[in-house]
Every structure is written in structure tokens, then in C-alpha cells.
Design a protein around this nucleic acid. Structure first.
Lengths: 233, 233
DNA sequence: AATCAATATTGAGATATATCAATATTTGGC
DNA sequence: GCCAAATATTGATATATCTCAATATTGATT
């Protein structure tokens, strides 16, 4: 009995947390998705999808935050982006090799729908508006990676950390004060530096009054200066 | 009557240098492409497409090599890939914002077809086999960028240079001895280091007998060692 | 409340890498 | 073939960054 029935599997038709992409489906298509989806809850820290595994489904995150990262060399990771509700997660594996090319880990308790990949592809083939929007989404993600490639290879640590903070502000929380869901290790993985360096840079920012870090909260106090540090690298 | 008529504009139907993607078009679609394409020759060093400009066309490189790079911070560039014939070039701008997100410069004399973007999109919408192949192509490119992101941020210079050389061998020339079409600046941009560092690393490789560099030619002498350097970073 | 494990912090030292400046070499244009 | 400009090379030096090791703090579990 327990958890299994706490949240009765609801139909996609009256789902309040559907990712915007799926709003473009008509009733029949939604029914198809409904019949071929699996809904799973994850606890903070759990792995939602593991890099390298077969891509049997695409994902839609209904609630909770997650980090999406590439597992690189000798255990090091590069966080590509933070996933917030409600968003679709596909990736280059859909059309290339049907594998996941990143790992997704829940940062807090999350609720995720897994939609059968073949069903997803079939719908995409027949609904061109949906296809266009999917491609737009995918392309936006690609541009984020372009951007990350540039700033991670061409800026030094303070600039990279500033970019990481601005990313959290601009793209994820839209508030200068936000809950610090990322560990120092995570911040290092997001800005391509060791976690010790992440600590030191943040300490410097704090000393100069640019940010305030208290228990599980981060506040950008001097946005202009942070943006300047981002700019001058 | 000069260059204009040296190479009479040939029809796409009997084009011998069509990129593989376009081989999936039927006769009518090819006719449409034919009627809405422009063919241009470039000299070595010329800019084929400039980052930031409006994407009115997609490209197909018929002959010649080119470098495709992102213009980053303070004039620094990151080469994403080397373009060889015959290949299609689109990019994330097609579906996101109709802009070019990289610059393409001819490395030697090149011949390029520009295909009207709207025509391309229309065909894509109606030919699902073509669409699938396009997506596969695009996804492969994205994975290349993923890969580059990891190796540029997680390996040190010798590993990055080894990867650059192996990229040229594995993906572009398929021969251990190949023409050195890239300058030291370019090699630096391909492996995220200053051109002076590129020179020094190559000198070290040469001293240890791993490669041979002579006028405009590069030869990988000890592939195993180069692969090992790539692996251990 | 006590304990253990994970995370965070710090500073010292080692290392990787960029920058600068000087010189050499190559290349394209005349 | 000569010249100017671009490219390549080199070594010295400055700087950025990582690694290591030690300590502190926090969080989860009992």
C-alpha cells in the first residue's frame, strides 16, 4: 500500500505539471503518451538517468530540481545544466544512437515521467508544430553548451564562477536570493574548477561584499560587479 | 569572360559533390533545391559565413576544407570542427533564431552551395527520412561538442594536443601523414591553448619522435604513444 | 546527545599555462 | 627575386590553478 498509491497515476489530460512542449499535442496524441508513460518519484541524490544506458524513454520533469552532467575523465563531471520543473529532457541520443549522453541526478525530491521513445518519435513525425518546438528546445540546449564551451575555456576562475552564479540567477531562479541547492563540488563541476578553488573564489566574492552565503542560501548583493567579473573573465 | 563561367552552374541532379544528406531527396525536392540555391567559390582565407549574421541559407560544401569556429572572448576563437567535402552545415540557428552561431573560414579554395533556408525547412517537414538523417547529423555534431567540452576542460595541454592530432587523423584525413592545413594559431584554437604553447607541445612531441613535421605536412609516427597521451590527459 | 561520514575550509607548495619580448622563418604581392 | 607582413619559434618570467594535507563544520543515523 504505502507510497505506491499516494499519488495516483493521473492522466496526462489533466496534468498540471506537463512540460510546455507537450502542450502542443492534440487529444489523441496525448492519449498515446498517457498509455505509454511511466511516472516515478525520486529522492534527493538519486540517479534519474545514467550516462551510457539505452534510451528507452524521454523524460519530463514534473517537480523537483536535478543536475544534468557529463561524466568525463577520471571521475570528474561537467554539469551541463540544472533542470527545473517543468521541462523536457531528450538529448542527442534520440536520433544518434539511442543512448543517454549525460547523467541526471535529483537535487531534491523529484517527480519524473518517462515517455516511450518510439511513441515520442512517432508523434514527432506526424505533428510538425511539435517537431518544430522540439527542435527549438534542442537547439537552445545546444547553444547553452556552445556558450559553456567558450566561457569554460576562455575565462579564468572568477569569471567562470560569476557566470555560474549568473546562470542560477538568470536562468533558474530569477531572484537574486536563491536556495543553494548545489554543493561546492557541484559549483566546481559547473565552472570547471576544483571544489577547493570554488570555495576560495566564493570566499573572495563574499569578502568583497559581492555575495552573501548563509546556510543553504546564496544572495547576489552586487549584481553589477558580478556581471563585470563575468565580462572581464 | 573570367571566372564567372569557368564552372557553369550545374544542376543538382547530376552533381557529383552533393553532401550525403541531400541524396535522400526525390527528384521534385531536388528540383526545388536546384531552383533555390546559389553556388559560390571561395579562396583560401575567405570567410564563408560570419557568426551573428542572419541565416538565410544552409550550406553544402562541395570541395575544399574549412574551419568552423566560435568567436569567443576578446578575439579568441574555439574551433568546433574542420569541415571537409562533401558535407552539410546547418547549426542550432536553423530552429532557434535563424542566426549563424559560428564563423566558417575557407582553409583552401572551396566551392559551396547555399540552399534557401525556407525551402530546406519545407522539404524537411515533408520528407521524414530526410528529417531523420538531418537530426542524426545534427546530433552527431552536438556529441562532438560534448566531447570537446570534456577534453578541453579536463585534460592538460599534451592531452589536448594529442586529441587535436587524433581528430585530424581519425575524422578528417584517415591517414597518419596528412597536409598541415592548420596554422599554429589554429591548432591552439582547436585545443584551447595559446599558439606559443601549441608550438612548444608539438616541439616536445617531435623531440620524442612521436610526430614528424615538415613543410606543410604532419605525420603521426607513434600512434600508440599519442593515444596514450590522449588517454592520460 | 553522540557518532560517523560527507562536505567545507584553509594555507602551503607544486605545477601548468599564459604572457611578453626578441628573433627566425615563411609567404604573398610586386 | 625582393620586401613587407604574417607566422613560427624560443626562453624568461609571471600568474593561475591544482593538489595535498590538515582541520572544521554540517547532516544523518542511532
Amino acid at each position: 500500500m504505502s507510497e505506491y498509491f499516494d499519488k495516483p497515476p493521473q492522466s496526462c489530460h489533466n496534468c498540471q505539471t506537463m512540460s510546455p512542449l507537450f502542450c502542443l499535442l492534440n487529444s489523441d496524441e496525448l492519449k498515446l503518451v498517457d498509455a505509454n508513460k511511466i511516472h516515478v518519484n525520486f529522492k534527493a541524490g538519486e540517479t534519474i538517468k545514467k550516462q551510457g544506458t539505452f534510451m528507452s524513454h524521454v523524460l519530463s520533469v514534473n517537480s523537483g530540481m536535478a543536475k544534468l552532467y557529463i561524466e568525463g575523465i577520471e571521475g570528474r563531471s561537467a554539469i551541463l545544466r540544472i533542470v527545473k520543473p517543468t521541462s523536457f529532457i531528450g538529448g542527442p541520443g534520440i536520433y544518434f544512437d539511442q543512448r543517454h549522453h549525460f547523467t541526471i541526478t535529483a537535487l531534491n525530491d523529484s517527480s519524473v515521467c518517462f515517455i516511450d521513445l518510439q511513441v515520442f518519435k512517432d508523434i514527432l513525425k506526424h505533428n510538425s508544430l511539435f517537431a518544430e518546438e522540439f527542435l527549438k528546445d534542442f537547439s537552445r540546449d545546444v547553444l547553452t553548451v556552445y556558450n559553456r564551451l567558450i566561457y569554460l575555456t576562455q575565462k579564468q576562475m572568477p569569471g567562470r564562477m560569476a557566470d555560474a552564479l549568473l546562470y542560477l540567477y538568470d536562468e533558474i531562479f530569477h531572484e537574486l536570493k536563491f536556495p543553494m541547492i548545489l554543493s561546492r563540488f557541484d559549483l566546481g563541476d559547473l565552472s570547471a574548477m576544483s571544489h577547493e578553488s570554488a570555495v576560495k573564489i566564493l570566499r573572495d566574492f563574499q569578502k568583497e561584499g559581492l555575495v552573501r552565503i548563509s546556510d543553504r542560501e546564496m544572495e547576489i548583493l552586487d549584481e553589477e560587479s558580478i556581471r563585470k567579473i563575468s565580462r572581464i573573465g
